[in-house]
């Protein structure tokens, strides 16, 4: 059924001489997203094994699990760092700026969930911006506390205990945050598909992100 509709749209779009798709994410953004996602899942899984006693006992091999966890933690920032390191960064940087900047509509997204569709929304909504900031902040906190747990000099024992508490709290918080992100992705197939293929139906954008739809038409996807 939905396939039929899409074919009709393609036919109409073709006759009117323009594409029914809008570019949402370029290949750099998609590679950064999925490599970061895989590393994050590896970190959550190995972290759970190191942290939860019943999993520690079931899996064992602590040195190997800890080694993967530490390696993954150091590697976590690489995709983003490489993504902004060269001339291929333009689209990624533009989206990072979009995630950073909040308009009145983004706050409204939280206040009136029932009327979200009427908002003059840009590429990302308030919830997506909050999620992005939360995960970015979480990555900074986990990296800092993790480095102190693993590499601080022995006389920092007081701060190591604090870093352990922070890292444990961060595990639970990030675990919930990532679960929410995955839930939203799986329940919004157009957006999930756009992170795989890079494009999203123009009709989706007109309805859900009208401000961005105009930006994309004028060459600022």
């Amino acid at each position: 059924m939905s396939l039929r509709i899409r074919q009709d749209e393609v036919a109409r779009g073709a006759t009117r001489g323009h594409n029914i798709w809008l570019d949402r994410f370029d290949v750099v953004e998609r590679v950064v997203h999925w490599t970061t996602a895989i590393l994050m899942l590896v970190l959550l899984a190995t972290g759970a094994i190191l942290y939860i006693p019943s999993l520690s006992i079931a899996v064992g091999h602590r040195a190997a699990v800890a080694g993967i966890h530490v390696f993954g933690g150091i590697a976590l920032l690489l995709p983003l760092a490489l993504g902004v390191a060269g001339p291929w960064r333009q689209r990624l940087l533009r989206d990072l700026r979009r995630l950073d900047c909040w308009s009145a509509a983004d706050w409204e997204w939280f206040r009136r969930p029932g009327r979200r569709l009427g908002l003059a929304r840009g590429k990302f909504n308030g919830g997506q911006k909050a999620e992005a900031a939360f995960v970015a902040g979480g990555m900074v906190v986990m990296l800092a506390s993790g480095v102190i747990m693993g590499y601080a000099p022995a006389r920092w024992i007081y701060w190591q205990q604090g870093a352990t508490l922070v890292h444990d709290c961060g595990f639970v918080a990030l675990g919930i945050g990532i679960a929410v992100h995955i839930y939203y992705g799986l329940t919004r197939p157009e957006q999930l598909r756009s992170m795989l293929t890079g494009r999203i139906p123009r009709s989706w954008a007109a309805k859900n992100a009208p401000v961005w739809a105009e930006e994309a038409e004028s060459g600022q996807p």
């Binding site: 900047c101 909040w102 983004d106 909050a130 902040g137 906190v141 102190i148 604090g162 508490l165």
Partner: peptide, 24 residues
């Protein structure tokens, strides 16, 4: 528009630093 995103990241970093400093 305001730079809420970077403030939120900095706020979380500050909270994490406080947790490391006083968490014990």
């Amino acid at each position: 528009e305001t730079h809420v995103g970077r403030r939120a990241v900095l706020g979380m970093a500050a909270l994490g630093a406080a947790g490391i400093a006083f968490g014990a």
